[in-house]
Amino acid sequence: MIDTGAAIVGTGLMGRVHAEALARIGVPVVGVVGSSSDRAAASGLGAYYCSFEEMLDDPRVRSVHICSPNHLHHAQAMAAMRAGRHVVCEKPLALNPAHAHELIAAATDFGVVNAVCFVSRFYPLCRQAAQNVSSGSLGSLRLVTGSYFQDWLSKDTDTNWRLDSQLGGPLRTVGDIGSHWLDLAGFITGQRVESVMADLTTALPERSDTEDMAGILLRFDGGARGVLTLSQVSPGRKNHLAVELSGSDASLRWDSESPEQLWIGHRDEPNQLRLRDTGDYPAGHIQGYPDAFKAFFRAVYDAIDADEPPDQPDYPTFADGFEQVLLAEAIAESARLETWVSVQR
């Protein structure tokens, strides 16, 4: 296989985000695949293929970025790996645990680099927060709270393919934005969620098959407790992810709309507001969402350049995608039964 570049499957927002980030780290996009050749041609992303199969037949394609609707992820990732391509997949990895587990097994069998796009981990201050926790500066972790609010579906006239559970999956708000929060919370705390108590609500009756809002209680395996609130119907909140940790010695808080600031709270001394002082640009030169993708892809392509997955990846893999599928299953079951449900691993 010629060592050339990436192909992108999907020409919507995430396809464009991936194309921009790849260009910024010097990885060529040799072609894109859309839901139709007309759509791919109109995307403005460059050369295009008339079908997914035509893309896999191109020997220049070294890696495949899957940015298509959720229900296609499993089959497309499996086909790409069978063809010997490394795979970067948008979340969710799959719509059920069986398919997600199958993808992990295939990635191991084929020896390909595999990644899932939980990019919040790559904000410099999120990595700093994880270091604070692991160093013990917060003391014993007691409470993890937070939210992820958006408003893009707050009107009854708002529509998108994600509203169709056959395309987006049975959990919309939890799967679409809740998975990002849960992955970030796990990354920062170093703890896994062991059980959940969930309440899912649809604000607009015509969306009866997927939830608009969620309230979730969490129990972590390290002893911490958590509370998470999610909404895609909160006017004025464009993309507000916030996470706060309370430890025995200190607290910290980070949110995606102020990504250059990490609040650190103390009992007996003044609170602190730490500004980013690491990253690609000097402090005061804001690094945001596109930069997180750039950092994520840089880590993934270091592995691709080595032509094999590392023993301990420093980026989210299919295993992390599987974790979120398992959490979603437990959350859905808890909401249905109205009781605590353990995460089955």
Rank of each mutant, 00 (worst) to 15 (best):
L22S: 03
L22M: 11
A23E: 03
A23L: 07
I25L: 04
G26W: 05
V27Y: 06
V27L: 05
V30I: 14
G31V: 06
V33S: 09
V33Y: 08
G34Q: 13
S35C: 09
S36W: 10
S37T: 09
S37Y: 03
S37M: 05
S37G: 03
D38S: 12
R39K: 15
A40Q: 11
A40G: 14
A42V: 12
A42D: 10
A42H: 06
S43A: 15
S43Y: 11
S43E: 06
G44M: 14
A47C: 13
Y48A: 13
C50E: 15
F52A: 05
E53N: 00
E54R: 04
M55Y: 07
L56R: 00
L56I: 00
V61F: 11
R62W: 11
S63R: 04
S63K: 03
S63T: 13
S63M: 12
S63Y: 07
V64C: 09
H65V: 15
I66P: 00
C67S: 14
S68A: 15
N70W: 03
L72H: 07
L72K: 07
H73D: 08
H73F: 06
H74T: 09
Q76D: 05
M78I: 07
M78F: 10
A80Y: 03
M81P: 03
R82A: 06
A83H: 07
G84C: 09
G84M: 08
V87F: 07
V87Q: 03
V87T: 07
V88Q: 12
C89T: 11
C89N: 13
E90Q: 07
P92E: 09
L93Q: 01
L93G: 01
A94H: 09
N96R: 03
N96D: 15
A98F: 00
H99T: 11
A100S: 05
H101C: 13
H101D: 14
E102Y: 10
E102Q: 13
L103I: 05
L103A: 07
A105C: 14
A105P: 07
A106N: 10
A106G: 03
A107Y: 13
A107Q: 02
A107M: 08
A107F: 12
T108K: 15
T108W: 13
D109Y: 08
G111V: 11
V112I: 03
V113E: 13
V113N: 05
V113P: 08
N114M: 04
N114I: 03
V116I: 05
F118C: 05
V119Y: 01
R121T: 00
R121L: 02
F122R: 01
Y123W: 09
P124M: 02
L125H: 02
